[in-house]
């Protein structure tokens, strides 16, 4: 076995209380409901540009997110209708961030099972561990059908942000 080297950054993050919460990486500025786009490229650019405008990532990060989808495949479509876009910290992340757009009309991302997509998250991480709590809160929210239904039915930006911001539940230790 070659996995004997524990990934210490992962281990220490689990016991650290300096982890960033979901509420700290979302922003009204980077949350938009019912956006009209025609392709996965446009959806990715729109979500990415929100992060750029808010000063969270450099513009090259948007290209990097698109490149990841093209090079590694559409696995970022993590569930039916939901994509979690991201690239690497060194691709231009300024501070940890999570943008969310919902789409007026779903678009295909090239995933065999989970297309078309109408919920687009764009994650910017500064390292491999500090966003784990936020990711856990996000996963919990997406695993909850009621929350997901609320996200999909929100028609106003502020409404969508409030739904995200109300997610403070953490899996009990």
């Amino acid at each position: 076995m070659d996995l004997d080297e524990p990934r210490e950054h992962v281990m220490s993050a689990a016991s650290s209380n300096r982890e960033i919460k979901l509420a700290e990486i979302i922003s009204p500025q980077t949350t938009r409901a019912r956006v009209a786009v025609n392709s996965w490229q446009e959806a990715t650019e729109f979500a990415g540009e929100l992060l750029v405008s808010a000063g969270k990532v450099h513009s090259r990060y948007v290209d990097a997110m698109k490149r990841v989808l093209q090079e590694i495949g559409p696995y970022a479509v993590i569930a039916p209708g939901i994509v979690l876009l991201h690239a690497r910290p060194e691709d231009g992340v300024i501070e940890p961030c999570l943008g969310l757009i919902t789409l007026a009309t779903p678009v295909p991302f090239g995933h065999p099972e989970n297309d078309p997509v109408d919920v687009v998250f764009a994650l910017g991480a500064i390292d491999k561990h500090s966003h784990i709590l936020a990711l856990q809160q996000l996963a919990n929210m997406l695993g909850d059908e009621l929350s997901l239904m609320k996200i999909r039915s929100a028609t106003e930006d502020g409404e969508l942000y409030d739904i995200l911001n109300s997610q403070n539940h953490v899996i009990a230790e």
Binding site: P6, R7, Y75, A76, R88, K128, H131, I132, Q136
Partner: peptide, 28 residues
């Protein structure tokens, strides 16, 4: 593809399952 988005989310879910089922395994 990156090692900290999707794979981390999977790890979190699997850790939770293992804990409930009382199975010891290292998830990386």
């Amino acid at each position: 593809g990156m090692g900290f988005g999707t794979s981390m989310m999977l790890k979190l879910f699997i850790d939770e399952i293992l804990k409930v089922e009382n199975i010891k395994a290292e998830v990386i």
